[in-house]
Amino acid sequence: MSCEDCFFARNGLCALNLDEACPTYRPDHPDGLRPPSQMRFVFRQERRRQAAWAFPSAEEQAALHG
């Protein structure tokens, strides 16, 4: 990974004068500029079948405040 391999440097689009690849480095690919790979979003299995808390029912509220 170096500036010589960067899409921006090879296409005259780089405005930086660095000796190493910068955070905007993108590999020069024959298909053109490609977005950086991102982490995959994976849904977890829902383990909890019951809510951790719930509002008291009308009867419970009446008993508390009545």
Rank of each mutant, 00 (worst) to 15 (best):
G12S: 02
S57I: 07
F43D: 06
R40I: 06
A9I: 00
Q50M: 10
S2R: 08
P30W: 00
D28P: 03
A52Y: 08
S57Q: 14
R44V: 10
F55D: 07
P30E: 11
E59F: 15
L33Y: 12
S57E: 06
C14A: 01
R47Q: 13
C22Q: 13
E20V: 09
R26Y: 12
D31Q: 06
M1Q: 00
S2G: 05
C22R: 09
A21F: 03
M1D: 08
C3E: 09
P35F: 11
D31K: 09
G12Q: 08
A21C: 09
P36L: 05
N11M: 08
F55H: 04
R10N: 11
N11A: 10
C3T: 05
N11G: 10
P27V: 05
L33H: 08
Y25A: 05
F43H: 07
P23Y: 03
E4F: 02
Q50T: 08
A15W: 05
L16K: 13
R10M: 13
A9M: 09
F8Q: 03
C3A: 12
F41R: 12
P36K: 01
A21H: 15
C14M: 08
L16Y: 14
C6G: 03
M1V: 04
Q61A: 13
C6W: 07
M39H: 13
R48Y: 04
L16G: 07
E60T: 12
E4W: 04
M1R: 08
N17G: 07
S57R: 10
C22M: 10
F8A: 07
P56G: 04
R34A: 00
S2I: 08
R44D: 13
S57G: 11
F8P: 01
Q38H: 09
Y25I: 02
R44K: 15
A63D: 10
D5E: 00
D5I: 00
R26D: 00
A51W: 15
H65D: 12
G12N: 13
N17F: 01
F43S: 05
F7V: 02
M39V: 10
G32Q: 03
D28T: 04
S37H: 14
P23C: 07
C14G: 01
N17T: 06
R49H: 15
Y25W: 15
L33M: 07
A58D: 14
L18N: 08
N17P: 01
E46W: 04
A21S: 15
A63K: 01
P35C: 02
D5S: 12
A51M: 06
M39L: 11
H29T: 09
L16M: 12
F7M: 01
A9E: 02
C3H: 05
G12V: 12
R48I: 04
N11T: 15
E60A: 15
D31C: 07
A52F: 10
A52R: 02
R44H: 12
R34N: 01
M39D: 07
F43Y: 04
A62S: 03
A9F: 15
C22G: 15
T24I: 05
N17E: 10
S57W: 02
Q61H: 12
A9K: 10
Q45N: 08
